[in-house]
Structures are given as structure tokens and as C-alpha cells.
Design a protein around this nucleic acid. Structure first.
Length: 140
DNA sequence: GCCAACGTTGGC
DNA sequence: GCCAACGTTGGC
């Protein structure tokens, strides 16, 4: 398998939570209405790993999901937007809070911090490894 | 619930 | 093509 890319997906748990994703087994990541986020969605390929972050309520990374379908036209819009399908991979044993991320030097450059309103951001392989470790979680 | 940040829109 | 107004997001 080609080396996977890593991403971070934000969702307000009210709107769509990690546990909902676990229940559903798979979801359409639609509704993105920001060009930069859309470009990130379009750059995703099947097998890419996504950190799942609860914004607003919780403010922590709670699990890892996987892209199971690459970008296709968002059915919730007739304009030129995209969405992908994701499935859960593994929940974090220890959710990683926004504070913990900020306090970790190795994560200071994370796009989720520098572009704080972007709902789909890139994560480097090193950042991903660090976060997995902080979450006390290993990939299956 | 408020406010700051910032992307998008629309008037010029 | 600039820039002010507006809307949305997300942290607090």
C-alpha cells in the first residue's frame, strides 16, 4: 500500500460525533463549504488516516478514521463541492485535548492550530505519530 | 452567549 | 480589483 496521508477532521459532536460514526460504521463527510477544506478533501485518497476532533464541545481528538471513498461531488449541494466517505478505525484510549496539543512543542506547527477555523486540515506523519502516542493508541 | 478571526460577497 | 460588510466558526 502506498504511504497514507494524514488529516484532521473537525466536527461538532452535536452535529456528528465520533460515537455516531462508530454506530454508523461509515459516513459521508459532506457539507464542507470552504475552498481550502475542499481542496484537502480532494487530495485525500482511500486509506488515508483522519484524526477525528470534536470542536466546541470536548475540544479533543477522540479517534482515528480512514478514508474509504475518495472525493466525489457533495450530494448536499448543487454547486461544486466535494465530500468523502470515512469509516472508524480505532478510538483513542486517551482523548488528546486542544490544550495538550498546544502544550506540545512538536505540534506547534499543526495546521489545525495555525488555521484554526479550517475544518479539514493536513497532519504530517510525525504529528500523527506523536498524537497516536499521546492518545495511548496503536493502529490495528 | 459573546466575541475575535477570517473567508466570502457585493458595491463601487 | 479593492475593500467594507457580512456570515460562519470555534474558543472561551
Amino acid at each position: 500500500m502506498a504511504r497514507a496521508q494524514h488529516w484532521l477532521l473537525k466536527s461538532e459532536p452535536f452535529k456528528y460525533s465520533w460515537s455516531q460514526l462508530m454506530t454508523d460504521g461509515k459516513t459521508h463527510w459532506d457539507g464542507v463549504r470552504n475552498y481550502e477544506a475542499r481542496n484537502n478533501l480532494r487530495a485525500m485518497t482511500v486509506g488515508d488516516l483522519c484524526l477525528f476532533y470534536h470542536s466546541n464541545e470536548g475540544k479533543e481528538i477522540v479517534g482515528v478514521a480512514e478514508v474509504v471513498r475518495a472525493a466525489y461531488p457533495d450530494p448536499s449541494s448543487k454547486d461544486d463541492w466535494s465530500c468523502v466517505d470515512v469509516s472508524p478505525v480505532v478510538p483513542f484510549t486517551a482523548p488528546v485535548s486542544l490544550d495538550a496539543i498546544r502544550n506540545r512543542k512538536a505540534l506547534a506547527a499543526m495546521q489545525m492550530l495555525t488555521r484554526n477555523r479550517l475544518s479539514v486540515t493536513r497532519v504530517t506523519a510525525a504529528e500523527f505519530r506523536t498524537l497516536l502516542k499521546m492518545g495511548e493508541t496503536a493502529l490495528p
